[in-house]
């Protein structure tokens, strides 16, 4: 499955536009994890836990989106967009990762 954020695919012919495909995933708010992350910031450590989890969430969203595209018979996704939204309030962070694009069949 080819994923591209561009509007067209150079040297490829798009034979069919299948429409919108999207995928969502959520990183849960864990107050203990947040506290631990805060402590690491103070002692100049890297908050690698967040980075790992964001990557994991992004991959999860991509996977769902790709599965939907495959079900439509597509072999590529163009105009790919991804957004990270913090839905959390005062207690912890709840990050929603949304990936969406246009499923296409190309040759």
């Amino acid at each position: 499955m080819l994923l591209s954020s561009t509007s067209t695919l150079e040297n490829k012919t798009i034979v069919k536009y299948h429409g919108l495909v999207n995928g969502e995933s959520l990183i849960g708010s864990n107050i203990y994890k947040d506290l631990f992350s805060g402590v690491r910031d103070v002692v100049a450590g890297r908050t690698s836990t967040y980075a790992e989890e964001l990557e994991s969430a992004r991959n999860e969203a991509f996977q769902i989106m790709e599965n939907k595209a495959k079900e439509l018979g597509a072999n590529g996704i163009i105009g790919l967009k991804i957004s990270y939204n913090n839905l959390g309030g005062t207690m912890g962070n709840t990050i929603l990762v949304t990936a969406y694009g246009t499923a296409v069949s190309y040759e």
């Binding site: 299948h18 429409g19 919108l20 995928g23 969502e24 995933s25 959520l26 990183i27 849960g28 864990n30 989890e53 994991s56 969430a57 999860e60 969203a61 996977q63 769902i64 599965n67 939907k68 079900e71 439509l72 499923a103």
Partner: peptide, 13 residues
């Protein structure tokens, strides 16, 4: 820690 939800029933296209 990461949650996902897949709804294959609704076809917006």
């Amino acid at each position: 820690r990461v949650h996902s939800f897949y709804d294959g029933k609704l076809d917006m296209n």
